[in-house]
Design a binder for these strands. Structure first.
Lengths: 217, 217
DNA sequence: CAAGGTCCTGACTGGCCGTTCAATCGGCCA
DNA sequence: TGGCCGATTGAACGGCCAGTCAGGACCTTG
């Protein structure tokens, strides 16, 4: 593990330098395939050969792009995670009112899989957490993303305050922290098909909490 | 289910235990070792040989007791999970007031590892969730345990209602569901060493929420 | 064209590890 | 005493799979 330049905050092309257009698209294909496979069968059961097969290339080529299996899987984890937040930002941009935005976030959180897109695949999250628990690099990454998630919540709440929809004395940071945690916790139950904490129930709880805290009758 | 209730026995390493009950104790030894190893390095990186080495036996013996690696690891996951809730019940039995009980639960949830005991090892949870996500047997087990956890919360709240500490019109089920999810979500952040959601912060949030909902000024 | 670069592959290997197996050891009982 | 049985082991087998390697196809560009 050479001490390569690690500071870049943007996760576009950290490890390999595949400068070519074709190279980049290959990379993307593999990352997507890997993410899918992780979501389906779990990181532990995802083989280089599987990824290669799904893309329709030889296993050796996968190694050619990502030197090691671990590098590939971690990159895939990062990528799809990033994608999730990116699409959250996108969705929010289209919503104007606080109510709409809150509902959008809830919906996004509990949607099994957004129309075939890789994002939001529950399986991915469990593996991400698991990996983050040990792999410090992944942990740092995850922390940053989560910070971003809470920041996003805080931002829309502050916008709500400015618009007079939310009382100005609300502790925005604490709300963001709490609500984010609540969403996470509920997600787990829903993902694991808890018979009591169904998706509908979870959404209701999450919405109710937000509305009460934010003073949206 | 259908398992004979393994009564409380070894809490840590049996110092005085020489050769009382070879059969069951061997099983227990292996399960404990397996749980430790899973917590330390993760289920995926736990080998039969590791478990054997920790117990001080040959790998073949591990297979002799648990026919397959998977069976061993899953059993270990179950066992330690069960232990967690069991000790929660124990702790609660000693507390009388609702306040104490709530605080006890919060403390239990966020304690990194209870003085060397296997329970509460964060790593275990991530692997449990991960496994539950695919392995239906584990999923069912986990669901039952979680039901038990929420039931436990509901029980102490109802006791609080009977004692007049909590307003009688509280929706106990919903509170239990919400609070349990909140605790889970916060746990994740704390386990992953989020710089913002520290253990102290998480405990404060969890306590605050419970107190407000339960009307404990 | 030759040179040199990128992309790509099939064939191979080396190690790891779950699992099997034949054999031993030590009680227990008739 | 001898035979049965559970516990235990060392050794070996065999599958699986990440990663290597030597080369080849296909593009540039001088």
């Amino acid at each position: 593990m050479a001490e390569a330049t690690e500071q870049a905050d943007q996760i576009t092309e950290p490890a390999t330098e595949s400068a070519t257009e074709q190279g980049d698209s290959r990379r993307a294909q593999m990352l997507e395939a890997a993410a899918e496979l992780i979501a389906e069968r779990g990181l532990a059961r995802t083989r280089i050969a599987d990824v290669a097969a799904r893309v329709g290339i030889s296993p050796a080529l996968v190694v050619y792009y990502f030197q090691t299996k671990e590098a590939l899987l971690i990159a895939a984890l990062r990528e799809s995670e990033t994608g999730f937040y990116a699409s959250a930002e996108d969705l929010l941009r289209a919503r104007r009112s606080l109510r709409d935005r809150v509902e959008t976030l809830v919906e996004l959180t509990f949607t099994e899989e957004s129309k075939g897109e890789v994002q939001g695949q529950w399986g991915l999250w469990f593996d991400l957490w698991n990996e983050a628990f040990r792999h410090p690099e992944v942990a740092a990454d995850r922390r940053a993303l989560d910070e971003q998630w809470r920041g996003l919540i805080a931002r829309i709440v502050r916008a709500g305050i400015e618009d007079g929809e939310v009382p100005a004395d609300l502790d925005v940071e604490t709300f963001a922290m709490t609500w984010a945690a609540l969403l996470d916790g509920l997600s787990v139950q829903v993902a694991l098909h808890d018979p009591v904490v169904t998706r509908a129930r979870a959404e209701a709880i999450a919405l109710d909490f937000a509305r009460r805290e934010l003073g949206l009758a």
